[in-house]
Simulated assay, not measured.
Amino acid sequence: MEMGSGAFFQPGSANLTNDAVLFLKDVADLLKEPRYLGFQIEVTGHTDDSPISSPRFPSNWELAAGRAIAVVRFFGALGVDPDQKRMRAISYGDTKPKLPNNDDAGNPIEENRQANRRIEIRVFPKYSRVF
């Protein structure tokens, strides 16, 4: 699953929005079903290449990590995996864009930057991937 961070977080923040909470509650209910108990849950955070520098998030790495961690913690709080032994939060910062952030002349492409700011949730069998 892929969610654009614009609907899930305010700019420069890792606090879940009300829309994110509603959506992630539904996802959490699915992940608690017995058929998913043997599955790993990987949450990855991505940003665009716009620089950020705040006391809480000195770079895009920390912002993307904070967002991924917020989702993992939220799932844990809802009982998906309270010990968080089968969940992972990963930050890619701006290193894995879906689309180019800038055109050939170096001008920002805002639609692409928006697409690059995202959270991805991957659910896969426990032993199908090495961490």
Rank of each mutant, 00 (worst) to 15 (best):
M1D: 12
M1C: 05
E2R: 15
G6K: 07
F8L: 15
Q10V: 08
Q10D: 15
G12S: 11
S13H: 11
S13E: 04
N15T: 14
N18W: 01
N18V: 09
N18Q: 11
N18H: 12
A20F: 03
A20G: 05
F23P: 00
L24T: 00
K25V: 13
K25P: 02
D26R: 03
D29P: 03
L31S: 02
K32F: 10
P34I: 12
R35G: 05
G38M: 09
E42H: 06
V43H: 01
T44L: 03
T44P: 01
T44F: 00
G45C: 05
G45R: 01
H46I: 06
D48T: 02
D48Y: 06
D49K: 12
D49I: 00
D49E: 06
S53M: 12
R56L: 14
S59A: 14
S59G: 11
N60W: 02
E62W: 13
A64G: 00
A64I: 01
A65R: 10
G66K: 00
I69P: 01
A70L: 13
F74L: 03
F74H: 05
F75R: 02
F75D: 05
A77I: 03
A77R: 12
A77M: 09
L78M: 06
G79N: 08
D81E: 03
D83Q: 15
R86M: 11
I90T: 02
S91A: 14
G93T: 09
D94E: 11
D94W: 13
T95I: 01
K96F: 00
K96V: 03
K96M: 11
K96P: 02
L99G: 03
P100I: 09
N101T: 03
N101K: 04
D103H: 14
D103S: 11
D104E: 15
A105V: 04
A105R: 10
G106P: 08
N107A: 13
A115P: 03
A115R: 14
R118W: 06
R118P: 08
I119L: 12
E120H: 08
E120K: 15
E120Q: 15
I121S: 01
R122W: 04
F124D: 14
F124V: 04
F124Q: 14
Y127N: 10
V130S: 07
F131P: 00
